[in-house]
């Protein structure tokens, strides 16, 4: 992958309609290293489906999805799985493997994909856990943990191992204000390191109040991904249109 290549590129990608909750349309998006896209959607299934599309989990009718310069549809079985190990996801549901304890759940992707010593992985995970407000690495069963702690543990899992792409499907709401600051700190550090991120939200006001630098602000609607225009942009465009008319 060259430095000028996007980390993630959706090039007129149209998944099969019956395979996902995404609308039957083409998706275009280019995310360079250090860029973050905010996608506003009220449909949780669509957020998951778009994350699946970015992770190469949906078959394409036409177009291409490239991650780190690799076209998902041209990769072999092993390469596909290995490349997915470079993606950190903060999923909405079904996120915890019930037969494993929480700390194994957190460490599992890196234990599977890397040969890094266990102690080193545990140290990294403990450090991240402290940053999101946990006293250490949670070792209980996921179903026995409070929802808020589970959310923090999910953040640890998503950011562990310096992923190149972050897909934060879980919509951060105003009532999780204890988590928003550490999460944005982690996100900022990841972006500075050269990762790209897509954050899904139901309400973008929270992101506006945090004044987080966004490369793309998009709406996921029936006709695909549409840029969200601010009030100032809208009035500027209206003025331009009126000027054209009067000329």
């Amino acid at each position: 992958m060259k430095a000028t290549d996007p980390v993630l590129e959706l090039a007129a990608a149209r998944p099969f309609f019956d395979q996902s909750a995404l609308p039957n349309t083409r998706f275009d998006l280019r995310l360079m290293a250090g860029e973050c896209a905010l996608v506003v959607t009220h449909d949780a299934d669509r957020a998951t489906a778009l994350s699946d599309l970015c992770s190469g989990m949906l078959d394409l009718r036409d177009g291409a999805v490239r991650f780190m310069g690799y076209n998902w549809s041209e990769l072999g079985h092993e390469q596909t799985y290995a490349l997915r190990g470079r993606i950190g996801r903060l999923p909405q549901r079904g996120a915890w493997i019930g037969m494993l304890r929480t700390h194994i759940n957190i460490l599992l992707p890196l234990l599977h994909h890397t040969r890094e010593p266990l102690d080193s992985l545990v140290d990294q995970a403990v450090e991240l856990a402290r940053q999101v407000g946990l006293p250490g690495l949670p070792i209980g069963r996921p179903e026995a943990m409070p929802e808020a702690d589970l959310m923090r543990a999910a953040c640890v899992r998503a950011f562990l191992g310096e992923p190149r792409l972050l897909l934060l499907e879980h919509s951060i709401s105003a009532d999780s204000d204890e988590l928003i600051t550490p999460l944005l700190n982690l996100l900022t550090r990841a972006l500075d390191r050269g990762a790209a991120a897509i954050c899904f939200t139901r309400d973008s006001r929270l992101w506006r109040t945090q004044a987080f630098p966004l490369a793309h602000h998009l709406h996921l609607l029936e006709d695909g991904l549409n840029p969200v225009r601010s009030v100032r942009e809208k009035s500027r465009q209206r003025d331009a249109t009126e000027r054209e008319r009067t000329d």
């Binding site: 699946d52 999923p91 493997i97």
Partner: peptide, 25 residues
């Protein structure tokens, strides 16, 4: 039972999204 619950709970899909092949693991 374990695998049935994993499949029904969407946890197999979570594994796939993490790049972990359920067949291998």
């Amino acid at each position: 039972t374990e695998f049935g619950m994993l499949k029904a709970g969407g946890q197999v899909r979570t594994m796939i999204s993490q790049g972990i092949d359920p067949f291998l693991l």
